[in-house]
Every structure is written in C-alpha cells, then in structure tokens.
C-alpha cells in the first residue's frame, strides 16, 4: 500500500517548485477546499480559482505540445487553454452564457496563442514581419470560426421562431444538415388545429341548427375569428402570422363535413406550401326535430372530429374550393 502511494507521488511530484504540475495540484487543492467550505460565495470563488489554476497549468504544460497531422502541425494547447478560460469566465453565472462562451472561444484561444508572441518579456514588442503575418491569418481564422458558431446560433433562433420548419425536409438545403432526419417534429399547425377542436365544438353545440347553417355559410369570417381565439390560448410564436385557417364544406360528403384547414404560407420545401386538415362532421342529434329554431336547444348539434391528417402539398394549382 505504502509503495503504491509512493509510486503515485513519484509520478505526480512536480519536478520543480514552480512548474505546471504545481499549478494543476493547486487547482485540485482549491477544489478540495471548496468542497468543504460552507459559505456559498467562498465556495464559488474557490471553484473558480481552481479552474483558473487548471487553465494556467494546462496552458503552460501544453505550450509545446504539437500534433503532426499529415504534415500539418497543429498546436492544441491554446484551444484547450481557451476553453478552460471560457469556463472560468462564463460558467456558473445566473444567466446562461453558453452562447457567448462558444462564440468567444476561438477569439480567446487566439489571444492565448498571441500573447506570448506580443509580450515576450511582459512588455509589448512588435514581432518580426513573418510572425505578424502568421498572427494576422490566425486572428482572421479565429474570427471566421467564431462567425460560424454565431451563424449556428442564428439558425437556432430562426428555428425557435419558426418551429414548423422542423416538420419539413431540410435535405435540399445548401447550408444546414439535419442529423436526425427521421425525427420529424409535427408542424405547429397540428397543435393549432387540435386547440381549435374544443373551441369549435363549444361554439357550434351552443347554437340552434339554423344558426349552425348560417355559421357554415359565413365560415370565412367565423373561421378567422376561431383562429384568433386559438392564438390567444397558446404562447405566441413569430411564425403564427404565417398560418391561415380556412374552412371548407365540400359537396358530396355527408352533410355537413367541415374541413378545417391550416394553410402554411411560410417557407417550405415545396414552393407552394402545404396545408393540414381536420375534418369535422356536424350533425343534428337523431332524436331531435327542430320545432322552434329561435329557442336555444343545447345538445341537439353534434360535432365529431377526426385527428389531423398528414401534410397535403399544394400543387401548382391554387387551393381549390370544394374538392369532393
């Protein structure tokens, strides 16, 4: 047992008092202390200090590490040090700073790589022209990497504002790839139509039959009003203005079949877009006969709806009325 411990100590013993191994050990030590300390603020500070010592230790230790990749020599040190610096700077705050951390990671790594060249003896000195050229290219490359990260987050924002885009195939895109091509999510129109169903039932079943027929005649305005009610029930998303509700009562189907449609007017893999459809059968309850249409007769109108079907692509012809 003692031998093993000695062996481990020999392995980890810093060669000199001031070396990168010492800094790593100091970081482990400050984490241990922070685990014991009770005070919240002190614990946080010690953990952060631990990350900082780890950063300095690793940065020092890896400063001469190089990877030879098919003749291309890479120095991974600044990247790892930069990542640890991002942890020190951006982790553990009340707000989520992942985005800021990822976007600034390449720039911080560049700074880590450039500082030893710009401040060789802790004072600024202009490096030789070849080094200047190299630093400039490195700086522009890290700006480019950071722009790519930023572009990724812009795309995330777009998808958050237009979630229905994820219900479509992105296979044609020249910009993005989708890693889980199988996992299509449903377009938001499905949610909207499902929310509309109880509202529609509630509205129609409270009406006498004659008013139901008038409702169906005036369906254009009524359905638009229905959509407004639906939108009030759900948190607003930017894409909501691109959904248009549309009601259709095709001839030839059992009277009355209301085809409630949500038409997507936004970007889609088919230039004309698509619509989603929920068909609702509106009938008079069998045991009732209309004696006096002016009195409210609850329960006489029955509305039964089917689940929302698959996307229906709109062909080059515009949406036609009464396709039954």
């Amino acid at each position: 047992m003692k031998e093993i411990l000695e062996q481990i100590w020999k392995q980890f013993k810093p060669p000199r008092a001031f070396s990168w191994q010492t800094l790593v050990l100091v970081s482990v030590f400050s984490w241990c202390v922070s685990a014991i300390v009770e005070t919240e603020a002190l614990r946080d500070l010690l953990a952060r200090l631990g990350w900082m010592f780890l950063m300095l230790g690793v940065g020092w230790g890896m400063s001469s590490t190089r990877i030879n990749l098919l003749g291309l020599v890479l120095y991974p040190g600044p990247w790892i040090t930069g990542a640890l610096a991002c942890v020190v700077l951006f982790a553990g705050w009340n707000v989520d700073l992942t985005r800021v951390a990822l976007v600034s990671w390449p720039l911080i790594s560049f700074a880590v790589a450039a500082i030893p060249k710009l401040f060789p003896r802790l004072t600024f000195s202009l490096p030789d022209p070849p080094v200047r050229q190299q630093l400039l290219i490195q700086f522009l490359l890290s700006c480019l990497l950071s722009a790519w990260f930023q572009f990724h987050f812009v795309i995330q924002d777009w998808l958050r504002a237009y979630p229905s885009l994820l219900g479509d195939s992105l296979g044609r895109s020249a910009f993005v790839v989708r890693l889980d091509e199988r996992g299509f999510s449903v377009p938001r129109g499905v949610t909207l139509l499902n929310l509309a169903e109880p509202l529609l039932k509630q509205e129609l079943q409270a009406l006498p039959w004659a008013d139901v027929e008038r409702w169906l005649l005036e369906r254009e305005t009524r359905v638009a009003a229905l959509q407004q009610q639906v939108l009030q029930q759900t948190p607003r998303v930017e894409e909501d203005t691109l959904w248009k509700f549309w009601g259709d009562v095709p001839a030839g189907l059992p009277e009355y079949t209301l085809k409630l449609r949500a038409v997507w007017l936004g970007p889609s893999s088919n230039l004309k877009g698509y619509f989603l459809e929920k068909s609702c059968l509106i009938t008079q309850a069998a045991n009732a006969t209309v004696i006096n249409p002016s009195t409210p007769n609850n329960g006489l109108v029955q509305v039964t709806c089917q689940p929302v079907g698959d996307k229906i692509w709109i062909d080059p012809q515009p949406l036609v009325q009464g396709d039954g």
């Binding site: 790519w148 572009f151 993005v176």
Partner: peptide, 15 residues
C-alpha cells in the same frame, strides 16, 4: 432541442 440542425454544409462550402 434543435442542436440536431447544424450549418455543416455552409461550412463545407465555405472551406
């Protein structure tokens, strides 16, 4: 939630 959509094609074309 959306991490599965990455701008990898844009990056490949840019390179």
């Amino acid at each position: 939630m959306f991490v599965s959509v990455l701008p990898l094609r844009a990056i490949a074309f840019q390179i």
